[in-house]
Design a protein around this nucleic acid. Structure first.
Lengths: 363, 363
DNA sequence: TTGTAGGCGTTATCAG
DNA sequence: CTGATAACGCCTACAA
């Protein structure tokens, strides 16, 4: 249907236009009206009589006309798309946020385009490109700290900025208290009787200037101090995000002669690697080694991993909701939302309930 | 720095333009040349003298001018962005593909924007919006079958289409043989001595018209037939994608009085749920129950799950590479790439090597 | 080599 | 209520 229509209506001013889709001008000509009128019915504006409206709508349908968003943006001086820029789109925690955010936006008919960036430079480029009143109406930045210059460039272009999992002081943002999260883990491990506690965090390989891993470490450290323990520097490791590298990292920790009796991994993905390392070394979890992760992914429950739960989906949904509000009315001051955290205690850190074993990687 | 520059240069034809970023005209005026010249240096074209070029470049730098991609696309009648549209961006297998595709594109300086869609309707809308010579130059469709009408609408708009994990007959595509994958699992399970084999697949909740789950089932079925076994209809279940729903589904299967002695889950995510169900029911894996998944995610190795491995990252990389080729020279006929599959045998389906246990979900 | 004018598809402003 | 026409920012003939 569609393609045949295009083939039929290729005439404009008597000239053949191969493969071109109809323009507003074609519609106007076809309906025998001016372009202004077509534009009015397109934008559902007042001051257009019913019969005229119908005639135009018929022409639109016949020509299978769809307005060019591009030309529209250029003319209006503003776009009606929203963009999301995020790092590490392979991480379950990140995609969970993004997914719920997009879902919520889609629910009200807003399609957002997502930009995955792999390092700071790319992030800066994308933000720069988006700092143009024509290109996007709103921007959601996930996890990456935004500089003051970027913020002002964006507001100068009239694009509303919202931080998801990152605080943006001069704009809306939704985030958690990572220091608190780390502290929760620390006091839990102490309460469970662990004494030599270690930490496995993520290095910021893309140079994004992430802070969460370090914040969680600070929280852990302060909780330990409060409990009269100290975090041995040799038991603190940072490695690439991921199960296998965390496993390697944990192996190093666990094979030392003053090995930790508990490890806090700053992500569940990493914690899984720690569990795997423990299994490989014949350590029983939670007796010989306590393990706690972060994010409380679905996998954590299946595997019996204790973890700090944060409302990932909710965070995305809140951002979407706020975004939609910003799109309509322009409230004054920025709104910051600090989401709640809670520790989900499972077998991996509860000496009471004995944990069987991790599945053996064999073949 | 940036914002101060914007504040300084707001004059155009003697008029104040608040917050506007410089246009090509501003640059021309500032350099004391015509817009044509500026355009030429912008697009690195010939026929512009060195001193002139330098003067223009200086003006560009001073005004912190960045051309509007939007206006450029409208004027040229073509865009230089590439888009990716994908369903289920929460699934590890999907993001692995996308991630490597985007990474490869970024490596050569191409930033792609990703559209996550939640059902067929949204997919159709996005494709429709993208079927505009102005909006995008190339489109990667992940996993979703594209209709003939959509294909021709796209090529009519001159946007090159590439299928990732889906065959597009009239265009480039990279995919696997899902029937073969299912068959590999079937013969493996038979060889391991399993006799009552079950299947847990994904329902197509977004109505995308996916085929892979059913294709894998067909493969399984044919392998069983070849081995003189049959797949009992009561042992075939389709449920929402995900660990927890697969677990529920498997519980149903395993608690029936004619329960299967092996289950093939059409994804590793689902297989994890099956493992969890087995643990909960006190079934020993692989003795009482064999389990095989699909995709060979990182998690599979950790957990000792047998799985059909497909080159997820590679698929994305190949698509990116092909895309770049299409962007430069326009080769004639479509190239289809069928990627290899191989079964990774681990503890979960190898009666020989006894598998300890899954971690107990306890608290 | 360089400047000028017309066009890309819309919206918005103003006369009618 | 409706129809021209000038922007929007850029590219590209064409003319100088």
């Amino acid at each position: 249907m569609t393609e045949s229509v295009w083939k039929r209506f290729q005439v404009k001013g008597g000239q053949l236009r191969l493969g071109h889709r109809a323009t507003i001008e074609d519609v106007a000509a076809h309906a025998g009206v001016g372009v202004g009128t077509v534009s009015r019915v397109l934008n559902r504006r007042q001051h257009v009589s019913q019969p005229m409206r119908e005639r135009v709508e018929a022409a639109i349908a016949e020509l299978d006309y769809r307005p060019s968003q591009l030309a529209r943006s250029l003319s209006k001086g503003s776009s009606d798309t929203v963009s999301v820029v995020a790092p590490h789109i392979t991480r379950p925690s990140v995609v969970a946020r993004i997914d719920s955010c997009l879902a919520e936006l889609n629910r009200v008919g807003v399609v957002a385009s997502l930009f995955g960036v792999f390092n700071r430079t790319q992030f800066d480029q994308v933000v720069d490109a988006l700092s143009d009143r024509h290109s996007t109406r709103a921007l959601v930045v996930v996890s990456i700290p935004v500089t003051g210059a970027q913020v002002s460039a964006l507001q100068c272009a009239n694009v509303s900025l919202i931080g998801l999992d990152v605080k943006v002081t001069t704009s809306d943002s939704v985030f958690i208290d990572n220091v608190l999260g780390g502290a929760m883990v620390g006091s839990h491990l102490i309460a469970q009787g662990y004494r030599r506690i270690g930490f496995v965090g993520d290095v910021d390989s893309g140079n994004f200037k992430f802070t969460s891993s370090h914040a969680r470490l600070r929280g852990l450290k302060s909780a330990l101090q409060k409990g009269g323990l100290r975090l041995e520097p040799e038991n603190v490791k940072f490695c690439e995000h991921g199960t296998s590298s965390a496993k390697e990292c944990a192996m190093g920790l666990l094979m030392s002669n003053r090995a930790p009796d508990a490890i806090f991994a700053s992500s569940d993905t990493g914690a899984l690697g720690v569990l795997s390392a423990a299994t490989e070394l014949g350590l029983r979890v939670p007796d010989d080694l306590g393990v706690v992760g972060f994010d409380d992914l679905e996998m954590a429950e299946v595997v019996g991993l204790s973890s700090v739960s944060q409302p990932l989906s909710l965070s995305g949904a809140i951002v979407a909701e706020r975004l939609i509000k910003r799109l309509t009315r322009q409230d004054a001051h920025p709104i910051h939302t600090l989401l709640d955290l809670h520790l989900v205690k499972r077998a991996s850190s509860s000496k009471a309930c004995h944990l069987a074993n991790v599945l053996q990687p064999a073949n």
